[in-house]
């Protein structure tokens, strides 16, 4: 990745703020548990107690310290979203390049598979998967990978086909360069930039998917602390202590929006920088 694209990406104040916010949320999610005043499952008072000096965000429906649970609750969404997205790219990028460059029977099969996955509404697919295997984090990750892969595959395949129409690729074939050389020197570097812009969109999607599952009670099982779950399990108290829902909702929102703003800015600067 060239420095000029990164510089352009961060040229706008909005993008710089977004970067800072992403870093804050990541720090909160990873380091939060070490600074939490109470254990996440420790009952410390009456349910829905108001905000006090000891309990910065009051207590939840079981009387646990909401602030501690907030500090614990970001880890899962961060780990699941990131690992699922990265895994999806590891699966789909090589397949996409292969398919776009060599075509052939494997390409036809991969396209057919991706068509069927496309026909499943994402949220519904995850629900069915979890219904049949029972909720578990590895299943969630596998499910998100299955959902993202065909979409990444299609994009990479299209970009590869586009790039391979370029005359520098034809010239490379015509002078007898090997498939590997063409893949790694001509295709991959030119695929990576648009794919990086796409990565942010997928990551954002993973965050939304996992957080929604957690909200529906299909993420980490109780009594674990998880931002999505915290909102739904405290739903009955929303009129008394709305901040219990607001804090995790805000954290998820900030994380997802900031990733999206960064991605958007990156995609724009790729368009503007000369070397794509």
């Amino acid at each position: 990745m060239s420095t000029s694209v990164l510089r352009l990406t961060l040229a706008k104040p909005a993008a710089r703020i977004a970067l800072v916010l992403v870093l804050i949320i990541v720090a909160l999610a990873t380091l939060g548990p070490y600074f939490s005043p109470y254990a996440f499952d420790e009952i410390v008072g009456a349910p829905f107690a108001p905000i006090t000096q000891e309990h910065w965000l009051g207590t939840d429906f079981l009387g646990r310290d909401t602030f501690s649970r907030f500090l614990y609750g970001g880890r899962t969404v961060l780990v699941v979203a990131l690992s699922a997205t990265v895994a999806a790219y590891i699966v789909a990028v090589p397949l996409g390049i292969y398919s776009g460059l060599r075509r052939g029977p494997l390409d036809v099969v991969l396209i057919a598979i991706s068509d069927v996955i496309y026909a499943l509404p994402p949220a519904i697919f995850l629900l069915v998967l979890l219904a049949s295997t029972g909720p578990s984090l590895p299943t969630v990750i596998v499910g998100i990978v299955i959902l993202h892969s065909p979409r990444i595959f299609r994009i990479v395949r299209l970009i590869t086909m586009d790039i391979s129409k370029n005359e520098y690729v034809e010239a490379a074939f015509a002078r007898g360069e090997s498939w590997t050389a063409i893949c790694f020197l001509d295709i991959l570097p030119n695929v990576l930039t648009p794919v990086t812009a796409d990565f942010g969109v997928r990551l954002c999607g993973s965050i939304i998917l996992y957080a929604s599952l957690s909200y529906l009670g299909l993420g980490l099982p109780p009594p674990a602390a998880d931002w999505g779950l915290m909102i739904s399990e405290n739903r009955i108290g929303i009129t008394i202590s709305p901040w219990i829902a607001i804090a995790p909702a805000l954290a998820i929102a900030v994380f997802s929006v900031a990733v999206n703003v960064l991605t958007d800015s990156f995609a724009r600067s790729v368009g503007r920088s000369k070397e794509i």
């Binding site: 370029n166 005359e167 520098y168 034809e170 010239a171 490379a172 015509a174 002078r175 007898g176 360069e177 050389a181 020197l185 001509d186 570097p189 030119n190 070397e275 794509i276």
Partner: peptide, 30 residues
């Protein structure tokens, strides 16, 4: 390989003839 090298082609569109990610030196050195 020898036959391929002995016959070379140069194309119409100079914008698409060179890999944008390679320097001129890298391009020719390959």
């Amino acid at each position: 390989k020898a036959d391929l090298g002995a016959m070379q082609i140069v194309f119409q569109n100079p914008d698409r003839s060179l890999n944008p990610k390679e320097s001129i030196a890298q391009s020719i050195a390959r």
